[in-house]
Simulated scan of single mutants.
Amino acid sequence: MSIVTLAEAKQQLRIADTDTSCDDEVQAYCDGITAVVEDYMHEVVEPRTVVEDVDGHRHFGRRFRLWSVPLISLTSVKSVYTEYEWDVSLMRPDPQTGLVRVLSGPPVRGLVEVTYQAGYEDVPVNYKRGALVVLQHNWETRRGVGALRSSVVGPEEIHNPHWMYSIPRKALEWLGSPRVVVG
């Protein structure tokens, strides 16, 4: 899965739709950039199923935290050691924090396996634009197009060469501040 489509990537890179000579390479860049953006933002962007083990002994079994956010929906909460499965309709997940509260029914105890959907149902436009800037920057540095002051890396990048490698400053401005992760 990728944040940007092959067609969007080719348009950003100014590759004609009819030119399919590098489609596999461009698609590989698109697929890789999704992970780069997700790592930087500390959140899941492309929707997917996540399976996570949670220790239900904390907080007396009435709440637990899931780490892949934003959280779209809970699918199941099952005990790892027994056959027991909790009713997820009796739980209230917070999409942004991943905190799940057990509203009624038995508390979640022991080690449990939680299956859920995480990501954005609609990828934010600024994430998509930021991903396209990352794509263009990495494409040009890999293929030798342009110099330090090319269309992606401008004079504002020179003061901090750390950001010039995979995620240029222009992309960081599109993406915004990453989500704060608190343990």
Rank of each mutant, 00 (worst) to 15 (best):
Asp23Thr: 08
Asp23Lys: 10
Val26Asn: 02
Gln27Tyr: 03
Tyr29Asn: 06
Tyr29Leu: 10
Cys30Gly: 03
Asp31Pro: 01
Asp31Met: 05
Asp31Gln: 07
Gly32Asn: 13
Gly32Glu: 03
Thr34Asp: 13
Val37Trp: 03
Glu38Lys: 06
Glu38His: 10
His42Tyr: 07
Thr49Trp: 02
Glu52Phe: 05
Asp53Glu: 15
Asp53Gly: 05
Val54Ile: 14
Gly56Tyr: 10
Gly56Asn: 00
His57Gly: 12
Arg58Lys: 14
His59Thr: 09
Arg62Tyr: 15
Leu66Val: 12
Leu66Met: 08
Trp67Pro: 00
Ser68Ala: 14
Pro70Trp: 00
Pro70Arg: 07
Leu71Gly: 04
Ile72Ser: 02
Ile72Ala: 06
Ile72Met: 14
Ser73Val: 03
Leu74Met: 13
Thr75Glu: 15
Ser79Arg: 05
Val80Gln: 11
Val80Cys: 09
Glu83Phe: 10
Tyr84Pro: 02
Glu85Phe: 05
Glu85Gln: 15
Glu85Thr: 14
Glu85Leu: 00
Trp86Glu: 01
Asp87Cys: 00
Asp87Arg: 06
Ser89Ala: 12
Leu90Thr: 14
Leu90Phe: 07
Met91Gly: 05
Arg92Gly: 00
Pro93Val: 04
Asp94Ile: 01
Asp94Pro: 07
Pro95Phe: 08
Pro95Arg: 10
Gln96Gly: 01
Thr97Leu: 04
Thr97Gly: 05
Leu99Lys: 08
Leu99Asn: 04
Val100Phe: 06
Val100Tyr: 03
Arg101Leu: 11
Arg101Thr: 13
Arg101Ile: 12
Arg101Tyr: 14
Val102Met: 11
Val102Gln: 02
Gly105Val: 08
Pro106Ala: 15
Gly110Ile: 09
Val112His: 00
Thr115His: 04
Tyr116Phe: 12
Gln117Pro: 05
Asp122Leu: 03
Asp122Val: 13
Asp122Gln: 11
Val123Gly: 03
Val125Phe: 09
Asn126Lys: 09
Asn126Phe: 09
Tyr127Lys: 07
Tyr127Gln: 09
Arg129Pro: 00
Arg129Trp: 05
Gly130Val: 02
Gly130Cys: 05
Val133Ala: 07
Val133His: 01
